[in-house]
Simulated assay, not measured.
Amino acid sequence: MKITKILNNNAVIVIDDQQEKIAIGAGIAFHKKKNDIVNVHKIEKLFVMKENKKLQQLLNRIPEEHFTISEEVITYAEDYIGTKLNEHIHVALTDHLSFAIERATEGIHLKNKLLHEIKILYKPEFEIGLWAIKHIKEKLSVEMPVDEAAFIALHIHTMKLQGGDLRQTVRHTTIVRDMVQTIKSYLNIEVEEDDISYQRLITHLRFALTRMNHYELHTMDEEMLGMIKKKFPLSYSCATEIAKNLSKVHGVDLPDEELGYITLHIERLRKK
């Protein structure tokens, strides 16, 4: 396995099976130069990457330790969730973390308005984010806010093979936040984020949006829906307010059947 380009001390481009690949490992390029043979025992990751030019550009403008930290987070994430992440994570997360570390070093901390929703909707990914900011503190002595754990969680989620698009994920999470805010304002209530009823509501709203994207809807007969309207008028009225705002602000139309299920969740939360 011959080196064709050294990216940094821990990453090189090699030719393997007549294919250009990126090899990553601690000190893999130490005292090495182009055309040298790689010590295979030092290779921790080896993969083909369509975006290797982007990665090269990125590594030319960020501190090497930022790349190392990012790879450690990726390795931890893949072990934690038990699946490989999309190769784009090596560019996307490295770029994000490097910029975030720079901001934190300068005392600039961005608030994540979707923090509470992300903690519930993407719990495993958020746990990875918490580990990451702790790891960064231990390695670089840079203190990062819990908001950053949520940003990292979104990157991890969207880089899972079934994770989806980051923009779509942020949009859905924003919509869920707006729906919850409508409930709180309409009913004039406060909710605790660790309450099981609240967590069930958040999860249901997310999957409701996902089902609509895939044209999969809950089925609820008219008789059952009529009973729910009659038995829980305030919660159903709140659900219709959610639907009205959702259509107006986000251009998403909820079917009547979905309003019935949302009503049940709102009622449970209201009683709590």
Rank of each mutant, 00 (worst) to 15 (best):
K231E: 15
S235K: 00
K230N: 12
V252Y: 08
T240P: 09
A239I: 02
T263F: 01
R268A: 10
I242G: 08
P255V: 04
K244F: 13
V249W: 09
M227D: 15
L264C: 11
K244V: 08
N245W: 05
S235W: 01
K229E: 15
Y261W: 13
L259D: 04
M227P: 10
D253S: 13
R268C: 00
D256N: 14
D253A: 11
T240V: 13
P233H: 01
K244G: 09
A239R: 03
F232Y: 14
D253T: 14
P255A: 02
S247C: 12
I262M: 08
L254P: 11
N245G: 12
G260Y: 02
S237C: 05
C238Q: 01
E257C: 08
I228H: 13
E258Q: 09
S247Q: 12
V252M: 08
E241Y: 04
I242N: 06
S247A: 10
I266G: 00
C238K: 00
V252C: 05
F232G: 02
Y261K: 09
V249L: 11
E267S: 06
I228D: 11
K248T: 10
L254M: 14
K244P: 10
G251D: 09
H265C: 03
E258C: 09
E258S: 10
K231A: 11
I262T: 04
K230S: 15
A239T: 06
S247R: 12
A243H: 05
E267M: 02
L234C: 02
F232V: 05
Y261Q: 12
Y261G: 06
G251P: 06
M227A: 15
A243I: 07
K244Y: 13
E258G: 07
L264M: 07
C238D: 01
E267V: 05
P255E: 07
T263M: 05
D253F: 06
D253H: 12
Y261S: 07
I242D: 10
K229C: 10
S235V: 01
G251S: 03
A239E: 05
R268L: 05
P255W: 04
T263E: 06
I266H: 03
A239C: 04
M227T: 15
L254F: 15
E258N: 07
V249Q: 13
H265N: 01
V249A: 09
S237N: 13
C238R: 00
L259M: 04
D253C: 09
L264V: 11
L234Y: 08
L264E: 09
P255F: 02
D256P: 14
P255Q: 03
D256E: 14
Y236I: 00
T240E: 14
L264K: 01
G251N: 02
A243F: 10
M227Y: 15
A243M: 08
A243G: 07
V249N: 12
L234I: 08
L259G: 05
A243D: 12
L254H: 07
K248V: 02
K229L: 07
Y261L: 13
K244T: 12
K229A: 04
T240S: 11
H250C: 01
